[in-house]
């Protein structure tokens, strides 16, 4: 059974008098413990789809139809109070630029601890131990220093790792990663990708990666969903789609990546 099952999702934006579909009847499934890549260019609606799963669309964007099933429960129909228990605890999100996703005025360790404080019953001492363990899990060598640092004091790679540590803090089942490596240099990218795989195996995570980078898809994803102008144009196992792209848009993407 799929962990996440999106059916006929349509999201519209108000534009003056009329409305425009940003995401148009998108359906795809994310099987458990798979890494699924949602691929598309700018404005294809991939980030919007990701935020819709979290039910955190910005004002002006509305889900007009469709269902998002998470473990069989419909997220679209869920009341706000119940959603809050899902966010962070069941599904978490990693952002493109952790420098902005971390609050600049608090230490990194403190912000990871905040998630634990909200979603677990651990005592303060236990929480600090857990932060330490989490930072080790994302292969940070000196967790003490990183935990005591402010976000701007860390390098891009360390920040992204710390962001991942924060995302997995409350043991979520699904991690949505929005362009997690776009702001990193190539060597760091490769290491972060191996880290994703390792975490998937260790923690039985399911990962939905939102990206425009087909190189990343090739080395990481099990499944690919290609979005163009808010519509799914192609989906299937990663190897197959990359080897034999059927849709023109996918072919163009592949061509551009060469």
């Amino acid at each position: 059974m799929s962990l996440l099952d999106i059916q006929d999702l349509t999201i519209e934006a108000k534009q003056g008098q009329g409305r425009q579909a940003i995401v148009d009847r998108v359906s795809f499934a994310v099987p458990e413990q798979n890494i699924v890549a949602l691929v598309g260019g700018s404005g294809s609606g991939k980030t919007t789809t990701g935020l819709a799963v979290m039910r955190l669309l910005s004002p002006g964007l509305n889900i007009v139809s469709g269902r998002i099933y998470f473990e069989g429960n419909d997220v679209v129909a869920m009341p706000e109070g119940e959603l809050r228990r899902y966010r962070g605890k069941q599904m978490a999100m990693v952002f493109q630029e952790p420098l902005y996703a971390f609050n600049p005025v608090f230490r990194v360790g403190c912000q990871i601890e905040e998630v634990l404080q909200f979603h677990t019953d651990l005592t303060k001492g236990q929480r600090q131990q857990r932060v330490d363990a989490l930072l080790r899990q994302v292969e940070i060598k000196d967790p003490g220093r990183v935990a005591r640092s402010y976000p701007y004091q860390l390098s891009g790679g360390l920040r992204q790792r710390a962001m991942l540590a924060q995302a997995i803090a409350a043991n979520p089942k699904l991690v949505i990663a929005d362009e997690p490596t776009s702001n990193l240099d190539v060597t760091v990218q490769a290491r972060i990708l191996t880290l994703f795989k390792k975490l998937r195996d260790d923690l039985k995570l399911t990962v939905l990666i939102i990206t425009h980078d087909l190189g990343l898809v090739r080395s990481l994803a099990d499944q690919v969903v290609v979005l163009s102008s808010g519509r799914v144009v192609e989906e299937g196992p990663a190897g197959e789609v990359l080897q034999h792209p059927r849709h023109v848009y996918t072919q163009q993407l592949l061509e551009a990546a060469k």
């Binding site: 979290m54 955190l56 959603l83 809050r84 228990r85 899902y86 966010r87 962070g88 605890k89 978490a92 999100m93 952002f95 630029e97 902005y100 996703a101 971390f102 609050n103 600049p104 905040e114 998630v115 909200f118 979603h119 924060q166």
Partner: peptide, 12 residues
């Protein structure tokens, strides 16, 4: 963005 990130974490 950190406000969105905080919402994603499920904070009240």
């Amino acid at each position: 963005e950190f406000v969105l990130a905080a919402k994603v974490m499920g904070l009240s």
